[in-house]
């Protein structure tokens, strides 16, 4: 095994270079003075100030953040319920269909999710008058539907590996099931809930296709603005936006990593 070490390191170096060179090029050229994105003509932060003056883009970003926060919260509640049902109740009517409905959105092409939900919303509006028109509400419903599947997967794996003896002890001592859930189960699966919330938030913030189908005239999300500006050609403002997103994501991942690491360390200390 040892003589293959250089080969393995080379594979990893090439793999990570492939993953990170495009992102690095975005960051470097966001500080380029020239409008021609790939010709370097000097350091400048002008595209960041241009970005902050772009009111259409800022408005879309604010709408996207609101949609993503609502989506993530709803998806965590629904996804956790689905995970609890699948992990804790072995047999029930509809188990097979729930399993399929939780896995399918993970791989379903987004053009299908978008079109089918739009047709449903149009038909529902014709039949019962709700949802009246399309916009933020319909986007949140659509995003929650696929995001809850991701949350369910994350929470399911945490629940499946959880030690049940704490819950059993509490029940034996007379605690009510609901109280056991809120004081014992919930804190134990909390890291998975946070990870699921962040994942759902990012998925929603990132979605172009589904939102384009189910959105109305008044609701333009950030990916829609980015998409139309990218279609018109490469623009340094998008590089600046990309750099801000990469910086925020890296910061969030570092904080999450640090918190998890501290928690693991604490758990190990507690165990001794």
């Amino acid at each position: 095994m040892k003589q293959r070490l250089p080969l393995l390191i080379t594979i990893l170096l090439f793999g990570y270079a492939f993953l990170y060179i495009p992102i690095a090029s975005l960051i470097v050229y966001s500080f380029n003075e020239s409008r021609l994105v790939t010709v370097w003509s000097g350091f400048s932060t002008q595209w960041y100030s241009k970005l902050l003056e772009n009111e259409q883009l800022l408005g879309a970003a604010w709408l996207s953040v609101q949609i993503a926060a609502l989506t993530a919260t709803l998806a965590v509640v629904l996804g956790t319920l689905a995970a609890l049902a699948l992990v804790r109740f072995r047999r029930f009517l509809g188990r097979g269909s729930l399993e399929v409905m939780v896995t399918a959105p993970l791989v379903m092409p987004d053009v299908i999710i978008g079109l089918s939900l739009l047709l449903l919303f149009v038909a529902m509006e014709g039949l019962i008058g709700w949802p009246a028109g399309r916009g933020m509400t319909t986007i949140v419903i659509a995003h929650t539907t696929f995001a809850m599947a991701y949350v369910a997967v994350v929470v399911q794996s945490r629940l499946a590996h959880m030690d049940l003896s704490l819950e059993e002890a509490a029940l034996d001592l007379g605690a009510r099931p609901l109280k056991v859930f809120f004081t014992i189960t919930l804190p134990i699966i909390a890291p998975a809930l946070i990870a699921g919330w962040l994942l759902a938030f990012t998925l929603s913030l990132d979605d172009l296709v589904v939102a384009s189908f189910v959105s109305g005239p008044g609701a333009t999300t950030l990916p829609m603005v980015v998409y139309s500006s990218v279609r018109l050609g490469v623009s340094p403002e998008i590089n600046a936006l990309a750099t801000i997103i990469v910086a925020l994501v890296t910061l969030a991942v570092l904080i999450a990593g640090f918190v998890l690491w501290r928690q693991e360390k604490q758990n190990r200390l507690d165990a001794h």
Binding site: L26, V37, D206, P223, V226, V230, V246, T250
Partner: peptide, 21 residues
């Protein structure tokens, strides 16, 4: 984590990066 990290940045922007390249 390094494999997953690019996945958390925007999908559109990752494609956009390739246009520039």
């Amino acid at each position: 984590m390094l494999i997953i990290l690019p996945f958390w940045t925007s999908f559109l922007i990752r494609i956009y990066a390739w246009i520039g390249i």
